[in-house]
């Protein structure tokens, strides 16, 4: 386990550091085609939504993922007010705190 974890950390560190560092070394003074730049900017909302939605809509505890639209899906219920808080406050702290508290409250109330 220990050796494996060390290898995982090393591998993850490498593949995380390269995309962070390479652009500032090789791209510093070069201008990008505007269409490419616009496309790159749209990657951020697309990737965040692509990461988020399966977490909310799918139950991945079983063998195959299945749609999980039910009152038992507490994260999905908590997500709606959390979106509202994010939209109104634009504060990451307030958003995360609201989401965690709501999820805990829903679990306590609805079981």
């Amino acid at each position: 386990m220990t050796r494996e974890i060390f290898e995982i950390i090393a591998g993850m560190a490498l593949v995380t550091a390269l995309p962070r560092i390479l652009p500032v070394l090789f791209l510093a003074e070069r201008a990008m085609p505007p269409r490419l730049e616009r496309w790159l900017k749209l990657i951020a909302p697309a990737i965040l939504a692509a990461l988020l939605t399966p977490e909310l809509l799918l139950d991945r505890s079983g063998e195959a993922p299945r749609l999980f639209l039910s009152l038992q899906n507490h994260p999905l219920l908590a997500a709606l007010p959390t979106f509202f808080i994010a939209w109104r406050t634009r504060s990451l702290f307030a958003t995360v705190a609201t989401g965690i508290i709501l999820t805990a409250a829903l679990r306590a109330l609805l079981g």
């Binding site: 965040l48 939504a49 988020l52 977490e55 909310l56 994260p75 997500a79 990451l92 805990a104």
Partner: peptide
Amino acid sequence: AWGLDFALPAMFIGLLTPL
């Protein structure tokens, strides 16, 4: 039970919404 598994989705919501 403490809702901590929602920390990551909540962070995504917080980053995504203003964009």
